[in-house]
């Protein structure tokens, strides 16, 4: 996921610790705002993390919710903490947001959903079981259904937009530092017409005094030449094992519980792939921008779109993204 601009490579040679921060920032589309809070930002950065753990989420979520989460490509955003958001008020929020959308429509908002004569019904619900720590607020799912004007009673409502707000393994220091009355759900995933996304966002902004920003997983520059580099999984695993600092023998069979992954291992792995590529094509991949990474777990694109293909690692993926959203937020 890391963008590898030339300057970060150069910086790496000069000062190792500095380059981590640079590449970590650029990995999340560094904004100038981040520069204003260097201390806090630095505290929130991880240069070493535990190896991903798999979670059997199928027992916690119902199949319908799981299918929605894992079969959709989500457009990711970060959200600053919500002021006076209550998980107990979801029914009332559903009504308020429905009314808000109706009002926006009356004012001439063009929402291009099939059959413009239809009205919208909003549903807020809790996706319990996603939160990992006691400090993580429960995930909230939002769905917007379209109701045709002359629909029969038994006609099923069509879901036209979905979204969710989550905080998975959010940095406890950060969460505890928030004033009372603020709920931190920094990760916002949405799927559906952009017009509806922005209506939902502006309703949240008006009601909970929060701010949404794009969670680019990288910079969005499409180079004229696109290169897709697919590595045989076994060979990729061997290369990865060869760059690990601690030999990975003991973890055979059991989950690599407790083992940690360092950023320089990740960088050595990436460098290994790049030099193998260079040896054949004499093209330096560092010059370009990494726009997408896909593995059996899912895919992440630089424009902030993600897809989770393996539910067992959904929690781990969302933990990483929560960290990214917290890092990206201006406060």
């Amino acid at each position: 996921m890391a963008r590898t601009p030339l300057n970060s490579i150069v910086a790496q040679r000069r000062s190792k610790s500095k380059s981590y921060r640079q590449s970590y920032r650029s990995c999340l589309g560094a904004s100038s705002r981040l520069g204003l809070t260097p201390a806090l930002t630095a505290r929130r950065l991880n240069t070493s993390r535990r190896a991903p753990k798999s979670h059997n989420i199928t027992e916690k979520l119902n199949p319908e919710q799981l299918a929605l989460l894992t079969k959709t490509e989500w457009k990711m955003s970060y959200v600053t903490p919500l002021y006076q958001f209550r998980h107990t008020q979801l029914k009332s929020y559903s009504r308020q947001l429905s009314a808000f959308i109706a009002a926006e429509k009356q004012q001439g908002l063009a929402i291009e959903v099939e059959g413009s004569e239809s009205s919208f019904r909003v549903s807020f619900s809790v996706l319990s079981g996603m939160a990992e720590t006691d400090e993580d607020p429960e995930t909230v799912l939002l769905q917007i259904f379209s109701k045709p004007m002359f629909a029969r009673q038994d006609e099923p409502q069509r879901s036209v937009w979905s979204g969710w707000l989550a905080c998975i393994n959010g940095n406890p220091d950060y969460l505890r530092s928030l004033p009372k009355d603020f709920i931190c759900l920094p990760l916002f995933g949405s799927y559906g017409p952009d017009a509806l996304t922005s209506v939902v966002q502006s309703w949240f902004q008006q009601n909970f005094d929060c701010y949404f920003g794009p969670l680019e997983i990288n910079h969005t520059i499409m180079p004229p030449l696109q290169i897709t580099y697919t590595i045989n999984p076994e060979d990729a695993w061997e290369l990865w094992s060869s760059v690990r600092k601690v030999p990975q023998e003991e973890k055979e069979g059991k989950e690599e519980e407790g083992s940690s992954i360092d950023i320089d291992e990740v960088m050595r792995f990436m460098q290994g792939l790049k030099s193998h590529f260079y040896r054949h094509f004499r093209l330096d991949l560092s010059v370009g921008t990494l726009v997408q990474v896909s593995t059996a777990l899912g895919s992440a694109k630089c424009n902030g779109r993600i897809k989770i293909s393996n539910s067992r690692y959904m929690i781990t993926t969302l933990t990483l993204l929560t960290e990214g959203a917290l890092l990206k937020m201006p406060i």
């Binding site: 030449l225 290169i227 897709t228 697919t230 290369l239 193998h276």
Partner: peptide, 21 residues
């Protein structure tokens, strides 16, 4: 810098696709 991989007998298998208009 990577002895383990260099000493490995099997080839490193990958597919590279270049795409452009």
């Amino acid at each position: 810098t990577n002895k383990t991989m260099t000493e490995r007998e099997e080839p490193f298998r990958c597919v590279v696709k270049f795409a452009s208009s």
